[in-house]
Amino acid sequence: MARARRTPANKPRLRALPGRETAAARVSPPLEDDEAALTYARGVLEAEARAIVGVQLGESFLKALGLLRECQGQAVVTGMGKAGLIGQKLSATLASTGIRSVFLHPAEAVHGDLGRVGRGDVILALSNSGSTEELLRLLPSFRRLGTPVIAITGGLESPLARGADVVLDIGRIEEACPMGLVPTASTAALHAVGDALAMTLLRSREFGTEEYALLHPGGKLGRSVQRVFEVMRTGPANPVVRETAKLSEVVAVMTRTPGRPGATNVVDRQGRLVGIFTDGDLRRLVEQGRTDFTVPVREVMGRQPRCVSPETLVLTAAAQMREIKVDQLPVVDAEGRAVGLLDVQDLLAARFL
């Protein structure tokens, strides 16, 4: 049967979206000039600041803190849309401060990712409205798994709040948006409450800069607490010769050693450091016309060189190298044995210099 052709007379009319008239009525005229733009932007900051300081923390916050302290599994953070993005940041903050955490996308959870959740976990569910359908569908599964739910939401009477074990209420917040629709002040409050929870949890445990640095090896803080043993040359890359070795043998060792360091540690029979011989020492011998490669290195080496221990902070060792203007530092253990060599090239590569 042939379809009837649509004409302007029988073309379906588009229905207005619910709330469209209200939203349209709240649209403000464009800002007139730069000063108006700055004034409005400051107003956005003030609105978000009011939303944050307006959050009341009390007994429920302490209960949430207790659940996370006693958590034997991981903190599973979940949320949709903008609240989900805030949740991802909260999960990352927890993980970076030593709390095992994963972000669970609600839409993916109902299609199998719920398998990321197990007994012993604690759920952190973020939703300003507390009525996000994708989150509510997960609540029965969380109950079956026996995982307590901490809701960070904007109302104690919402479906999410009623289904949670603990509710952190950010209150009803007016958004910093001319239409009152774009999540702004509410997400600022969600973010701030999440940070308050994560930082209070951090202060409740023994977790300092060294533990934090272990989780941030590529960052500035990680470098600030890195130890010499983590970057020094060891094993085959650590050039070592006996003090009785001929100068020709010493030069051969410096040349053959992987990475071709510009120096070699000189040790006695027990492996204790007694000196160092460098490329600079060799150049000075050439300039002085003393290039006798048959002499033992102990006659031309640098004696009593400055050295560091494996546990010395790399930043401290780097400062020593700058101070005495050398490119290598021997690394010795408690018995004075040469266990490594710190080379300026390695420090440059690791951005210590």
Results as ranks from 00 to 15, higher is better:
226 Q>H: 07
226 Q>D: 00
227 R>N: 04
230 E>G: 01
232 M>H: 07
235 G>I: 04
236 P>W: 00
236 P>H: 08
238 N>H: 10
242 R>H: 10
242 R>F: 06
244 T>S: 13
245 A>S: 14
247 L>E: 08
248 S>T: 02
248 S>E: 11
248 S>Y: 01
250 V>D: 05
251 V>T: 02
252 A>F: 05
253 V>E: 09
253 V>L: 12
254 M>S: 11
260 R>G: 05
260 R>E: 02
262 G>I: 03
263 A>Y: 07
263 A>Q: 03
263 A>P: 00
265 N>P: 00
266 V>C: 04
266 V>N: 02
266 V>T: 08
270 Q>R: 10
271 G>Q: 09
272 R>M: 00
272 R>L: 01
273 L>M: 15
275 G>Q: 06
275 G>K: 09
278 T>V: 15
278 T>Y: 09
283 R>K: 09
284 R>G: 10
284 R>Q: 06
289 G>K: 04
289 G>N: 11
290 R>T: 03
291 T>Q: 11
294 T>A: 13
297 V>F: 07
297 V>H: 07
298 R>K: 11
298 R>G: 00
298 R>F: 08
299 E>G: 01
299 E>M: 13
302 G>P: 01
306 R>G: 07
306 R>T: 10
307 C>M: 08
307 C>K: 10
308 V>E: 03
309 S>A: 15
312 T>D: 03
316 T>N: 06
316 T>H: 09
317 A>L: 05
317 A>P: 07
318 A>W: 01
322 R>Y: 05
324 I>V: 14
325 K>H: 13
326 V>L: 09
